[in-house]
Design a protein around this nucleic acid. Sequence first.
DNA 1: ATCTGTTTCAAACATACGTTTAACTCAAAT
DNA 2: ATTTGAGTTAAACGTATGTTTGAAACAGAT
Lengths: 211, 211
Amino acid sequence: MAHSDTVTRILDAAEELFAEHGFSETSLRSITTQAGVNLAAVNYHFGSKKALIQAVFSRYLSPFYKMIAGSLDHYEKIKPDGVLSIEEMLGYFVRAIAGVSGGDRRRLAIFMRLLGLAYNQGQGHLRKYLQNEYKTDYERLMVLFTNATPDLKPEERFWRFHFMLGSAAFTLSNMEHLRAIQKDEFNEQCTEEDVLELLQPFLAAGIRAAK
Amino acid sequence: MAHSDTVTRILDAAEELFAEHGFSETSLRSITTQAGVNLAAVNYHFGSKKALIQAVFSRYLSPFYKMIAGSLDHYEKIKPDGVLSIEEMLGYFVRAIAGVSGGDRRRLAIFMRLLGLAYNQGQGHLRKYLQNEYKTDYERLMVLFTNATPDLKPEERFWRFHFMLGSAAFTLSNMEHLRAIQKDEFNEQCTEEDVLELLQPFLAAGIRAAK
DNA sequence: ATCTGTTTCAAACATACGTTTAACTCAAAT
DNA sequence: ATTTGAGTTAAACGTATGTTTGAAACAGAT
């Protein structure tokens, strides 16, 4: 079908270019050129550049939350008390993240980059959109995290969650570049799986840290 | 003197507006308007917007490294073996960070955002500029970190350092937004000092984590 | 074959941007 | 008093951007 093909090509191109150059630095012309569609197609199908940015997020975030929700449904049957350890929780995250878009790590890096941008670009309109759009899923995740960290006070939990998020977002979004630096400095290079294996105990220990 | 006054006013305005809206989203017109100077003054004094961004960055980074270097000089006299604990090292960082520009945190947020950008765009002018400009200072910091973590293998140290950097960069560059979210969710708000106090044990525990 | 609604397309539009120019100001040196 | 040169200014320049337009192409139903 012509419609969804054009829409998909635009989303693919936008995703890649946004991650590489940021939102404002990416023009609709570069997106439509890379997508091989007409310039006007963006405004026709999405309405505006702002709406396109939101659509890029939704396309990634929807299946991600769907997968997380499915995992949680399954888990609640096995462990009815709903208490996961931090390590179990991180494992779930890693697997959910790795599972989305068929384990395509490039898309993961792109999305993490976009997530970081969403926090400090766009005057917050994007974050508010996401918060309204995925509010219940987000809250469900926070319940999970809360159960995994019963000893933390709410504000401690809030901040440690974001410390963790920042570390993961920075690492995953800069994965390729960091591995290049590592090769440059040590003449050795981890696989991406190795990095994830190193990251998990780092995060778990941070979450568990004494005050 | 008229010269340095105009230059300073431009740097102050640029710093503030960059922090609030990002680089591409901040126009020279908004900068010169806020600074109360003529539009052409930026290109006259700095040459280009790109050079202005570098100048904003240098104005922060130079005293930061000078302060770090001074602290290290002083510390090496007290502890000639040059071994700091992780907590001592983090404390130094926090104090150096807090001390630069009289504890003005907005400037810190800019610096952290620039740091993230420098890592992100592999071909960006910022990263190359920084690497040439502050190479020796960076290496000196890595020696300090190495001495603080004698049990880590080099590649573990490398990655945990960047996990830490990512967490700090994300938190500090999004400090205002995160605190706003906290207020939104909990009707409470930490001070920025509180956040730094929370961050330190998180990072220290991550660095110390069992493998 | 004709009609109908959707999608594509080249072109134009209006605006915002970084940059450049040339005239002007004014204090310090001659 | 005149010259000099750095600094400032308003205006203009060229370009890139997001958006809109109206006609053309297309697909599916009648």
